[in-house]
């Protein structure tokens, strides 16, 4: 029956859209990371990466975000099995871990500002805050979407037939995680 839907190779419409959007986002973060790499040494007399970065702390928040990918994929799995209880549990855990990460980023930013790195201190500071800030904004949007999903799951239940939005949110969330994997390596570990 579903004539228009299945004729072109069984590609899922929403997932195709999401992957093309994520490919586009790769370019976005690529440009931000490149800006940072260009400006990493231009400290204009302000503090540099080595003075500021607290690798043990960032490692912990990276670990938190990495584990949120696990809880997300478990939520996705529960959704595929139509297990509403597990779905809720893992959605809320993912949102919670996201909030922990954001809290860590807030703490990190305020420490850095305290130590003298502001948005207008140096091109290094500008590009660092812009990159990590845009990543944080992506996490925040993800947390909002996860919360909305959780509320919906309590009110109406997220069945597989009801769109494929848990899957879309999951793709988005994992994407935010892989961007952080790159940032953690390139921006933090390689700079100290």
């Amino acid at each position: 029956m579903a004539v228009a839907h299945t004729t072109s190779g069984g590609l899922d419409i929403r997932k195709t859209a999401m992957w093309s959007f994520l490919a586009s986002e790769l370019m976005f973060f690529g440009a931000l990371i490149s800006t940072f790499l260009l400006y990493r040494g231009r400290t204009n007399g302000g503090p540099d990466a080595e003075e500021l970065f607290d690798i043990p702390f960032t490692s912990v928040s990276s670990f938190v975000l990495l584990m949120s990918s696990l809880t997300m994929v478990l939520a996705h799995n529960a959704w595929e099995r139509n297990d509403q209880r597990q779905l809720r549990l893992w959605l809320l855990s993912t949102a919670g871990l996201g909030l922990v990460f954001l809290g860590g980023q807030f703490y990190e930013f305020s420490t850095f500002v305290h130590e003298g790195l502001k948005l207008d201190t140096s091109p290094f500071g500008s590009s660092f805050y812009m990159l990590t800030g845009f990543h944080g904004a992506h996490v925040a949007v993800g947390v909002l979407m996860l919360s909305a999903m959780s509320i919906l799951s309590f009110r109406v239940g997220l069945t597989k037939s009801r769109g494929m939005n848990v899957e879309l949110v999951a793709l988005y969330w994992h994407f935010v995680d892989i961007v952080w994997i790159v940032i953690f390596t390139v921006v933090y570990l390689l700079q100290v």
């Binding site: 586009s24 440009a31 204009n44």
Partner: peptide, 25 residues
Amino acid sequence: LAFSLPLVTVGLFQVILDRNFGTLF
């Protein structure tokens, strides 16, 4: 469009930040 727009988007954000928030891009 999908692959090129994000690049100018980053540049435009940098212009806006430079103009309004004192960044030094």
